[in-house]
Nucleic acid binder design. Sequence first.
DNA 1: GAAGGTACAGTACCGCCGGTACGGTAGTTC
DNA 2: GAACTACCGTACCGGCGGTACTGTACCTTC
Lengths: 208, 208
Amino acid sequence: MAMMTRGEETRARILDTAQDAVLAKGFEATSIDEIVASAEITKSGFFYHFKDKNALARALIERHITVEEEIFDGLLGRARELSDDPLQAALIGLKFLAELIEDMPGGHPGCIVATAAYQDRLFNADVRAANRRAVLGWRHRFRAMFDEIAAVYPPRDGIDLDHLADMVSGIVEGGIVMARAMNDPLITSQQVMLLRSYVKLLFSPRPD
Amino acid sequence: MAMMTRGEETRARILDTAQDAVLAKGFEATSIDEIVASAEITKSGFFYHFKDKNALARALIERHITVEEEIFDGLLGRARELSDDPLQAALIGLKFLAELIEDMPGGHPGCIVATAAYQDRLFNADVRAANRRAVLGWRHRFRAMFDEIAAVYPPRDGIDLDHLADMVSGIVEGGIVMARAMNDPLITSQQVMLLRSYVKLLFSPRPD
DNA sequence: GAAGGTACAGTACCGCCGGTACGGTAGTTC
DNA sequence: GAACTACCGTACCGGCGGTACTGTACCTTC
């Protein structure tokens, strides 16, 4: 990280400025000329690092995946330190997630994956594949979490745990859409807390 | 409906062809030239009916709202005929909703509202206002449904019923994002069924 | 039956955007 | 000093959203 070549630094600067613009305005609305101006390079320089806008999208998604994984690792790791019980750890983790989203200034900045999902006809197979890998990563992560819980507390309803794992991502994505549509940044964290309530009811051995 | 002037017919034809294209490829990827060719008019004709692409987006969203309201009215109306109990009626209605989504060829075609939400910097205040009205309509509809249930069965957890009402829309929107990202059209209906499971657990007086 | 509005067709044009092509060059490496 | 990396500069292309203006078939109203 500390030792970057000049090329790597320029590439990182392009990604940084591009990410800010994309999260603020969407991928389509962010022009290459604009990125070029913000990153203080020329158009030639941009196309030297990325062969087209698809390549930029793919790089943004893949960087997003790694950053997000680190955040989730930290979140769930801290939650597990706070309780030996897998259900309690999950409930703490979901609360942390809701707080994380709520504390983001101006609400969750929006998810690049979803942005790509809604414009996937514009993107090529590479971008779509990167997108699928991101969602699959979430599924496996939360599937493992729910497996641990289900080993101790059998779920109250005949639930497919893969579907339940997808629900975490789905609630966040849907919450972002709702928050944007309603211009109310709190909606996303509220939805995560409802998911937490569901997980609690689903796995709790006895109500209250 | 049967008696339309020539202008109304042309306008409806533009909206029909535009909606097909937008749901298939997204709003940005659908060019006016393309709509004009499909609707067999000229560019002048298009701009006679819509002053710009924003006006088209707004008209699409507003038409989408009315069509969707009719569908939901039919769905929930039929569900209520099948059971006097508000909780059972809601569970039947959610099952109907999941089936409706599952039966859509190629999965849910995607929600225009979400498309607009993810590109809202491109749209003007009119479009965003129409978008908010759509989501508010859903909230009020499902809020009324949950109010009826809560009057009979107090919810097991301290839940804000507005948030729960938003969860219906949020689950559907998030499910669409996930279905698109994973290229698995069944995800959306699976997520709706999980929401049904939550509603069941949340309001059921005794487990099982 | 002339006047005026409605509902377009036709043509020409503009600026922005993604992308291509290609030549030049400062700095680094061997 | 040759070769490679990492760009800069300029010119250009086609597609897109949108504007501007003229023309005109059809219908209604007086």
